[in-house]
Structures are given as C-alpha cells and as structure tokens.
Design a protein around this nucleic acid. Structure first.
Length: 943
RNA sequence: GGGCCUGUAGCUCAGUUGGUUAGAGCGCCACGUUUACACCGUGGAUGUCGGGGGUUCGAGUCCCUCCGGGCCCACCA
C-alpha cells in the first residue's frame, strides 16, 4: 500500500520552491470522498514514518513540543480534541517550514485519578499493610465509572494495587492512541512516555535528589491542609474554594474575674435576654458583676461555623484597633462546656466586620488560625484526626470533669456528628445564643475531593518555589517575563499566581500509586526514626522503591529494627513528575544527545487552568536544575463551552464521545472546528462549524479533481513562466499575498487568521477563478502538443494555485490535502515545504490581484441578472453593457474572454467607465449593468 | 474585595495604528440539476456594534461610567 520510492528517501519530498516541478497526474478518482481517509493515511504515515523525528538534526533546526500528557483516567473529551488540534496545526506548520519537529506523546497515568479508576474498575482498594498475592485476580473487571462503595471493595496489597493500575492504564492508553491517530495528530509515536514508567520515575527521583542536594528540597513538620477522604496532604495549587453550607453559632465565652472568685449563677444578658441559666452548668459560669459598671463580667460572644472545634480553642482574637475589645486584651476567658482558660489577644488579621468581630482561634479551623498560632506563639491543641474524626484520647488541657467527659463522648465521631453533639450541649448549658443561622460560606477543598479540608500537623517534603524566598520569587517572575505567552494576557495569570504564593511547594503525598520519595531514614539504637538524616540512594540505582529496596550499607532484615532503617512511605505529588515532562520526553540524563537537540523546548501547549500547576512547576524545576526556561513559548487553549455558554462538563462531554464525533463528521471537519477558535479563547461546541469543515474538505477534493483533470492523466509542468494570461497572473499575485499573510499569522501563533485568509481565497478561487477560466482550460480537448498558450496558462496556473493551497491547508485538513497530493505528487504533503510567495510573485510580475477581483465582480453582475430573471445560469446573454469604475476597467477588459465564457455572453460585452454607481443595480466593486438582453432560457430537462 | 477575558446580524465569529455606506459563514428567502461538487451552485434580506457620557473633523475601535456573561485569586470567625 505504500509507495516504496519515497519510503527509502532520506527526506520524503523536498521540492525547492524555485525549481520547476513536473508532476504526473494519475489516479484522480471519478468520485471523491472523505470517507476512509483517516485509516488510509494513518496507516501510510505510520508505514512511511512521515512524522519520525530525525535526531541527527542540530538544535537550531529542531522545533520541540512539550506535549501535555493526558490523564489516563478513563476517557478523553471534546476539549482534548480541541486543544490538541491547535498544537498539531503548529507542529505541521513548523515541519513544513523546514524544522525537524520533536512531537512526543505522554500518558499521565500516575496518581489519584488512576487509583480511583482502578478502585471502581476492579472493585478493589489498597491496604498497604496487606502482603502481596501472587497471581491475584480482581473481583470485577470493567466496572465503568460507577463508584463502588468502599465497603464492597476488596482490600489488596500496595504491590497488587499498583499492578492493577499498570494493567488498566495500558488498556486506556491504547484507546487514547487510537483517538489521536484518527484525529491525525502528527505525533512521533516512537517517542511516547508514561509518567509512571521506570524512566519517568528515575527522572523524578533524580531531580528530587538534586533539589535535596542543593537545599531546594526540605522537610518540615507543620500544620497543613489535609484531605480526610484521601488521607493525604494537599498543596496550595490543588485547592479549590467552593461554596459550602453551614451554620453560624453564637457562642458565649466567660470572662475570668481577676480578683474575686465569687461565683454567682444566673448571669443575665440584657441584650438578648435569652440566656437561660437554669441548668446545672452554673458552676462553669463566672459570676457577672455589677452590670452598671460595664465590667468584663458579661459573656463574650463569638460566632463560629465549627463549634466542634471548641475543645481546640487556644485564644480569642480581635483586631487591635477594635474599640469593643480594648478592655479585654490581655485578660483571659473560659470556654463554654470545656472550661478551658484562654487569652484574649489582638492581631491585625482579625476582621472587625466579620462575625462578632472577635474570633475563636482553634488548632486548627483555618489558615488564619495557623497564622495566629504561629505569630502569637499559641499552644497546640489538636482534636481532629487524619481520618476526619475527633481524637479519642483524653486532652490534657481539659481539666474539668464535665469537659473531659464531653470530650470523651466526642472521641471517634466525625466532625459532623461531633458538631451536633456540641451544639446540643451548648444549647443545654445556655451558652448558645439564639439558634444557629444557616449561612453559605466558602471552604477549601482538594480539587478532586468532596469534603472540606482539615488542617493537621504532619511531616512533609517541600520544594522551594518562591513561596517563602523572595529572591527566588523575583527570579521566577523574571522567568515568566521571558516566556512568550500566546495569547500574551495569559502571562498575567502566571504573575498573579507567583505573586500570591504563601508557602513552598508541598510535594509529598500519603498515597500509593505514585513515584516514591527516594529516601530512607536511619533508626536509632533506641528505635526512633531519625528523619533529620535521610539516607540517599546512588543516582545509578534509580528508580528505587524505599518500601522494598534496601539502602546502601544495610540489609533487608534491618528494616524497622533499632540501628537499622525505614523507607520513606510517601510518594510525590503528580506535579512533581509532570513538572519534568521536557526532561522525561527529551531524555535528560538518559540520552544526552537527544536532550541537547530538543531542550530547552520551543513550545508548551496547555490549558489555562493549569498555569498555576503544570506551567509554573515546570518553570520551577527547569530554573532550579538547568538555570533556564523549559521552553520559549506557551500556547494556552481555551475551554469548550456547551450551548448554554457554560464550561462543558465532563458528564456532558462524555455524551458526545470524541471518537463518535470523528466518525460522524470526519477528522478534517472536527479539526476545522477546533482550528477556527483562537488560542486562549473559549469556543462553543458547534456541530455547524464541523459541517462547514466537512464541506471544505469535500470541496478541496472536488475542486482539485476538477483543476487537475483538464488534461486528463498526464504531466503538468509547474513552470510559472508558462502562466501568461493577465487574469491567471493576477490570481497568482493574489495567492502570493495570501501566502505572506498566512505565514505571518502562523509565525505569531495565530492559526485562526491564517486559516481564514486561506479559506477565503480558496472559495473565491473555486467560485470565481475556476468558473472564469474553465472553458479556456478545457482548450477544446486538444492534445498536449497543440495546446494554445492561453489554455496552457490556465492549466498551469490552476495547478500552481492548487499546489500552493494544498500546502497552506495541510496543517488544518491533513487528510483531504494528503489525498489530493497522492493523485499527482510524490511523498507526503506534510513533508513538502511550506509555500513561498516569491516564485508566485515572480511569475505574476507585478500583475494586480484586483484584475481577478473585478473579473469576479463582473461575473457576479451577470449571474445576478439571471438570478433576478429566475433563469438558469446556462441562459445565454445576447448583449450586455457594464459600467465599471475606473479602477476596474482595465481588469475587466483584460479578462473579457473569461468573463464572457463564465457568464455565457454570446453577443456584445460593452464595458464603459463610470464614476458613480448608477441606478439601483450596483453590485460589488461598483459595477453596474447598464443594459442587457437575455437569450432563450435553457429548457429544463426532465428528471 | 483584587485581577483577567468577553458583549458586533437569529446563531458562531472577523473587524489591523480611529477613516467613506460595519463584514463572513451558518440559518432564512428566492431561483437554478451548469461535462468538479445536491455533502451542490447563484442571488437576496438581515444590525440601537450591551446602555449612557466624553475626546475627535470623524468612534465598533480611545477614555470614563453603568449593566450582562465567563474565569482566576483572596474570602471558613
């Protein structure tokens, strides 16, 4: 099925723009179709290695792309097709421009999405404490997306779990590749990678160890955001603020009287009058003193949405300038129910207009609590466990028996039920003022989670990213300046994010299917793990799994023993691996020859939503490791919006599967839709646009068949010197301008404008130019030797025009253009050089494109006559007088023969010059039909 | 609250540094089976350029303001 002549040629086809090409037309089908082109050319491109990267080319001749590795978590959606098409247009353009394009494909199969999918697909769950089962077979196979309840999942060992992850991702990746091939991505499939592969793990671990060596990676024990469902720490970049319903509870704290210990029950609160002090909790309430003095004896009300954190309260905090609380700063109060004495403190982060203006600081309810805890040097009273339930152990700071009893009751309960319990107790004790008021608040969520994050203290690994170090931040902002963003306003998102960082990059995760942090820790003779002296593997031994591999100088039987070692249990954040995609794809430290030819890369294409994660983290790693940018350009694609103007949701996107779209409309058509949207701009999911794309592809096939078939099968000499007629040369002059404009647009990553420019010219070429010259091009069926100069001029101009436009369209509609190319040219259009305007312009020799424009206007005027007379376009015009503006007279005169042919003018065509539009018959270009005489309408044939 | 994008024909979108009467395609209407194409062709109708104000000889374009849509960040008392 392949053409052997081109397969063994080192460069498939290289046609120097100025050389005269002799093309042999053969194999133009009688009936053209876009059907089946995808399979046909995918197979051919694969067989001929059309897109294989030639790694002998120097860096200066290479254009390298840091392709986004799609997450292998089930299915691709329309948005993927959209943005990957943009990248492919760039790749194909650069390849035709003479660059050797490095266009790898990766699969991001590492991390949570895969874990989740494996759980649901196989009905299993990872339990790291279990031993490995040889030859394990999961209970389900092929559960599709529907989640299986945790209780119904079979617990399996980590190694079994990871094996299932690998088994499933292989299947997914096959489907992904099939889709990309059908879409026509000109990826070099010899260069594909998986973020979980040994090579990727080696890169990720090596880069981490280098960070550690240079002091850029460090560990810290600190309060941090924690997802209780996944039981892992979460980084700032993975947060998502969501609306979360809750209730505001107005809760009384009781001042501690400094002098007297007189305890009087029944303090009243005259502002509410609702306090009911009839319960036995009287002893917890400090006595109110004389109300008339306005002393501190009245309860202090705070408002909280998380009363279950009351036992974790360490202070009450108000703004230092808040007059209401001036007298209280420096005093202490007792918490309700738990009766713990806490100070009232001033801190500028407290907001006077929020809640009661005075806040309960707990360890920890939110990030402000952490700030207060740190800056005011408050004690740690942690009550929420890593599984999101309350601590069951007694809290030493709660000394009152009633408080301790209540706290014991809360132990093991979820925050939700603990809250209900505390609220009941508050209501009973009279410390709840009024009823809880429903409120809508924002809470931080892990972007993949569905419960609000808690804050727990844990030991974690971090990589410096400028979140704390202002010098580094400045350097990274400067790197951002260096990146050429397309569109450029996307740079602002980078700047905003980097400018707003509030901490370093947390890279450790308490998960299973990821790249291990490649460290061990010594165990002291006393049995304590010494985290401060990690044991580092040799780079040569990477990748390592500290859970099963043994560090240098130790033996396996020392694992966990005094004087021995333990492996780091955590894995790295997926971004810690994907931030290294240029290094992984480019062969860093694995294939330095390759790496030197592709890095730093030319282009990073990606979505706007991951500028803060993928883009930024890649810049961080490259800056730290290589002291350079990872790539020069970042092309940011927009969203696909559904017809309701909302971001196309996954569920909706899955209704229309990408493969279904490609099958229904054809890949060229879908690509046309995608390519019609500018970078950075959201686009509507528009089937109509795909239909237009399909029409374009079919039109390219039909018009090409027509333009090539005038001489039947045979040789066409693409010699611009043979184009002698004014209108033919005018067409080439116009085309030369189109080439220049399209090239200029593509050079600035404006693929939409380039497409529009080419498309507009192409339709005019079909509707006007082809119609005008077809009679002349037929040349009355003469043999090649007998052709008139006029006929030859038309045929060569058509072929030259076609040749140029096929190349211009090739990045957008690769299948239809390749099909046409196969009818008369050697090799692949996708390895043909991008057209150059110079030879066209030389052939045109200063011909004015306006000649063709005016000939077109004249033709339109004649058509309009017939359309208004409601007669067939075949109807002859016996005589016509055209008034033409001065600027167009010479053009219409020069193309009079073709205008007469195109308009079926059998008698006189009189052209007069006009200065103004006359009458009401003005058409485009200011042409006016002064008078006309139509011949007999052609009788409509039956049938 | 801070920031970015966006609003042009029924729909999807172009509209360069301000310059005649604001464009395209789809859809719609009418006509037409032309030796490329009925998955077609030809022709036609269609606008308070979100509202208001300003600068200018001249504003879709520049400035101010208000309104609508989308997104990012901050906001858990």
């Amino acid at each position: 099925m392949s053409t052997p002549s081109s397969a063994d040629a080192p460069e498939t086809t290289t046609t120097p723009p100025s050389a005269v090409v002799r093309a042999v037309v053969r194999g133009v089908p009688d009936k053209v179709s876009t059907d089946g082109l995808e399979d046909k050319y995918d197979a051919r491109w694969d067989a001929e290695q059309t897109y294989a990267f030639d790694r002998t080319r120097p860096r200066s001749e290479v254009y390298s792309i840091d392709t986004p590795p799609p997450t292998v978590s089930g299915s691709l959606h329309v948005g993927h097709v959209f943005s990957y098409t943009h990248t492919d247009v760039v790749a194909r353009y650069q390849r035709m421009r003479g660059k050797e394009v490095f266009y790898p494909m990766g699969w991001d199969d590492n991390g949570l999405p895969t874990e989740r999918r494996v759980q649901n697909y196989y009905g299993v769950r990872c339990d790291p404490t279990l031993p490995y089962t040889d030859g394990y077979e999961p209970p389900h196979e092929g559960g599709d997306g529907k989640s299986i309840k945790a209780a119904d999942q079979q617990p399996i060992s980590r190694r079994n779990f990871v094996e299932l992850c690998e088994r499933l991702t292989v299947e997914d990746e096959k489907q992904f590749e099939a889709l990309w091939r059908r879409l026509g991505l000109s990826v070099d499939w010899n260069h594909h990678y998986q973020t979980i592969s040994a090579d990727s793990r080696t890169v990720a671990q090596k880069a981490f160890l280098r960070n550690l060596q240079r002091g850029e990676a460090y560990q810290a024990e600190a309060p941090g955001l924690w997802d209780v469902t996944f039981q892992t720490a979460v980084a700032q970049a993975e947060l998502e603020a969501r609306d979360y319903p809750g209730h505001l509870h107005r809760v009384a704290f009781h001042p501690v009287s400094t002098g007297s210990t007189d305890k009087t029950t029944g303090s009243t609160d005259e502002t509410t009058g609702s306090a009911d002090k009839t319960t036995g909790s009287a002893d917890k309430t400090t006595g109110s003193t004389d109300e008339t003095t306005g002393s501190t004896a009245a309860p202090i009300y705070i408002e909280t949405t998380r009363p279950e954190l009351l036992p974790a309260c360490v202070a009450l905090i108000a703004h230092p300038d808040d007059e209401r609380y001036q007298g209280l700063f420096g005093t202490t109060v007792r918490s309700p129910l738990f009766d713990v004495e806490v100070p009232v403190l001033a801190h500028p982060a407290a907001q006077a207009d929020k809640g009661a203006g005075i806040a309960m600081c707990c360890t920890f309810g939110d990030l402000t609590d952490v700030q207060w805890w740190r800056e005011l040097d408050l004690p740690m009273r942690s009550v929420v466990r890593r599984d999101g339930r309350l601590n069951a152990e007694p809290a030493p700071w709660i000394t009152s028996p009633e408080g301790a009893a209540l706290f014991a009751e809360l132990g093991g309960k979820t925050t939700f039920s603990a809250r209900a319990l505390v609220v009941d107790a508050l209501r009973e004790s009279g410390d709840l003022d009024g009823e809880p008021v429903a409120t809508q608040r924002k809470a931080n969520f892990f972007e993949k989670g569905d419960k609000p994050l808690e804050i727990v203290t844990s030991r974690q690994w971090y990589i410096r990213n400028g979140g704390k170090d202002l010098t580094l931040r400045k350097d990274l902002l400067a790197r951002g300046e260096e990146i050429r963003f397309h569109p450029d306003f996307m740079k602002v998102r980078y700047e905003n994010w980097v400018g707003g960082l509030n901490g370093d990059w947390l890279v450790s995760r308490q998960r299973f299917f990821g790249v291990s942090i490649p460290l061990w820790y010594p165990v002291t003779d006393g049995g304590d793990v010494n985290h401060d002296a990690p044991i580092v593997p040799d780079e040569a031994s990477l990748p390592v799994d500290p859970a099963s591999d043994v560090p240098p100088g130790y033996t396996e039987d020392q694992r966990g023993e005094p004087g021995g070692f333990v492996g780091e249990a955590d894995v790295m954040d997926t971004w810690a691996t994907s931030s290294l995609t240029p290094q992984i794809a480019g062969g860093w430290e694995r294939d330095e020859d390759l790496f030197s030819r592709v890095f730093p890369m030319d282009l990073r294409p990606q979505g706007q939503d991951i500028i803060r994660t993928w883009l930024f983290s890649t810049v961080v790693r490259s800056h730290l490791e290589h002291g350079s940018l990872p790539w020069a350009n970042a092309a940011i694609s927009g969203w696909i919006l559904d017809p309701d103007r909302k971001k196309m949701s996954k569920s909706k996107g899955n209704v229309v599967t990408p493969m279904g779209l490609l099958e229904e409309h054809g890949s060229d058509a879908v690509r046309y839709w995608a390519a019609s949207a500018r970078l950075g701009t959201d686009a509507a999911f528009e089937v109509g646009q795909m239909k237009i794309g399909r029409r374009l592809a079919i039109k390219i096939l039909n018009a090409s068949k027509f333009a090539l078939a005038f001489g039947g099968d045979g040789e066409i000499v693409l010699d611009p010197a043979l184009v002698t007629e004014t209108i033919d040369r005018a067409m080439l002059a116009g085309l030369a301008d189109v080439v220049d404009r399209a090239t200029e647009s593509l050079e600035t990553y404006d693929h939409t404008r380039a497409l529009e420019t080419v498309e507009t010219f192409f339709w005019a070429f079909c509707d006007d130019y082809l119609e005008l010259v077809k009679d002349r091009a037929y040349g009355a069926g003469a043999e090649e030797e007998d052709l008139t100069q006029e006929t030859r001029s038309a045929r060569v101009a058509l072929a030259l025009g076609l040749d140029t436009m096929l190349r211009l369209f090739a990045p957008y509609v690769p299948f239809a253009t390749e099909e046409v190319w196969s009818w008369w040219r050697e090799g692949s259009v996708h390895r043909a050089p991008w057209p150059s305007a110079a030879p066209l312009r030389a052939a045109a020799e200063g011909a004015d494109p306006e000649v063709l424009a005016y000939a077109g206007y004249a033709l339109a005027a004649l058509r309009r006559l017939k359309s208004e007379a409601k007669v067939s376009m075949k109807t002859p015009i016996l005589a016509v007088e055209l008034a033409v503006p001065a600027a167009g007279v010479s053009g219409v005169e020069a193309s009079a023969v073709d205008v007469r042919n195109g308009g079926r003018v059998t008698g006189d065509l009189v052209i007069v010059e006009t200065t103004e539009g006359q009458g009401d018959a003005a058409v485009q270009g200011g042409l006016v039909v002064v008078s006309h005489e139509l011949g007999e309408p052609v009788v409509r044939k039956k049938g």
